[in-house]
């Protein structure tokens, strides 16, 4: 049997795209967990970004640095929240999830590569790997309680 221990995970830190932009300008790394086909349509621009897709996340999570601020993002923020908790389980402390993901990033007019008009909700590659439900993220939760060094002036 796998000797995997259960760990109590604190609530993940979540930041909206506006706050994310500030953090990224200040040196945070963006980790896009969307799949290759999603990236081919539209991807984050004007920031340092690496892609660790959810389908490979268990094998590649240790490519993500521990010694800098990391923001995880996907299409609407559900898969990346799962990835954020997974990194927290692995002991990462400087991680946050981008709420509403690429969808809200585009709505805010932030820079992308590709066609910003084509931004369908992400579909999981398997039924359990990265399910996302945009409807569950309808409300905008600004991160006023965020531990972020950057305070969002105009959030969400």
């Amino acid at each position: 049997m796998t000797e995997t221990t259960k760990k109590e995970l604190a609530e993940a830190r979540e930041v909206c795209p506006t706050t994310s932009r500030g953090l990224l300008k200040d040196g945070a790394l963006l980790v896009d967990v969307r799949e290759a086909d999603e990236l081919a349509r539209v991807s984050f621009a004007d920031c340092e970004v690496i892609n660790v897709p959810m389908s490979e996340f268990e094998a590649r999570w240790n490519e993500i640095p521990r010694d800098r601020d990391v923001i995880l993002a996907c299409q609407v923020g559900a898969r990346s929240l799962k990835a954020t908790y997974f990194l927290m389980y692995q002991g990462y402390e400087r991680v946050a999830n981008m709420k509403h993901g690429m969808q809200r990033w585009i709505e805010r007019g932030f820079p992308v590569h590709g066609d910003a008009s084509i931004a369908p909700s992400g579909q999981a590659s398997s039924c359990c790997c990265g399910e996302e439900d945009a409807s569950s993220e309808a409300s905008c939760g600004c991160d006023s309680s965020s531990k972020s060094k950057v305070t969002a002036g105009t959030c969400c």
């Binding site: 995997t4 221990t5 109590e8 995970l9 996340f57 799962k82 908790y85 997974f86 359990c128």
Partner: peptide, 14 residues
Amino acid sequence: DMREIVSYGVLSTP
């Protein structure tokens, strides 16, 4: 609950 699932170190379900 997703958070509780991941608290076992599990990403791929079931």
